[in-house]
Design a protein around this nucleic acid. Structure first.
Length: 269
DNA sequence: ATGGTGGTCCTACCA
């Protein structure tokens, strides 16, 4: 039985409930990982989402900012809310889901955006972003999860690591999300967990792919000044199980869209 | 160098 996992930064779940329905119609995911839900857990529209077919939910919320959730057609267990880089921001939730091959560990993350200036000495938001990634990588190393543990990491990692993950490598190499130091931090995290980029498994590195287009760019589609900030990573035992990946670009053209689009991966598990 | 849009919640702050 294939398992389809979708990750999506919705930029407010309360503003995007219709969109969630459209996503479900388009992709029929088994698991949906959300970021930037922007609502306290108590205000999370869990009933509406259950009615859409996702009664099993792992939610980490806070008022107005951040917020992540895992929505599932199948039961979730071992729900954990995790915090990195200091503070209690709701940016990381983990859970387990059963498959025919045993349990699969799911993580979804909303990595700090990092502000405007890519200088950790003068921009505390950028320093926090680097600390967040470094702490998380360190935790993964200390945890020493065996590489054979099937783990899927999803989310808005707010880093576009490859030259073909941005519309212009030359224009963005000094812009937050595509700087050398952020990419180095993201690479360290990826190596710490033995992860493989599941979307790039299917799309050659020569091909440009994006998951985010700024609200501030007029004609997002024509200008196509996108970046790939949203990722799905899998550990080695899942690599031979990878059966497909989709970026739902059309979602950026929906009415009142999120600035991110859903990214989906299918696993034959 | 600046401002462009959209979200939260009501005054700026964050993306």
């Amino acid at each position: 039985m294939p398992l389809k996992i979708t990750t999506w930064n919705v930029n407010s779940i309360r503003k995007r409930l219709d969109h969630l329905g459209w996503l479900i119609e388009a992709e029929r995911p088994d698991v949906i990982c959300l970021q930037e839900t922007k609502v306290e857990a108590a205000g999370f529209p869990g009933g509406d989402i259950a009615a859409l077919g996702y009664p099993h939910q792992a939610v980490a919320g806070q008022k107005g900012y951040n917020g992540v959730a895992i929505l599932s057609r199948r039961p979730l267990s071992d729900i954990e809310r995790l915090h990195w880089g200091g503070g209690e921001a709701a940016r990381h939730v983990a859970a387990r889901v059963a498959t025919g091959d045993g349990p699969l560990e799911l993580h979804t993350l909303y990595v700090p955006a990092g502000g405007d200036k890519p200088d950790p000495l003068t921009n505390p938001k950028f320093a926090h972003k680097l600390d967040y990634l470094a702490d998380l990588a360190h935790w993964w190393l200390a945890r020493a999860a065996a590489p054979e543990t099937p783990i899927v990491l999803t989310g808005d990692l707010n880093v576009a690591p490859l030259e073909t993950d941005v519309w212009s490598h030359e224009r963005l190499r000094r812009v937050v999300t595509h700087t050398e130091i952020e990419i180095a931090h993201l690479d360290r995290l990826r190596l710490a967990g033995h992860w493989v980029d599941a979307v790039r498994h299917f799309v050659p590195e020569t091909e440009k792919i994006y998951s985010w287009w700024s609200y501030r760019t007029p004609d997002w589609d024509g200008a196509d000044k996108g970046r790939r900030l949203d990722h799905v990573w899998v550990t080695p035992p899942l690599v031979p199980r990878l059966a497909g990946a989709t970026i739902l670009r059309e979602a950026r053209g929906w009415p009142r869209p999120s600035d991110h689009v859903p990214v989906s991966v299918v696993l034959d598990v």
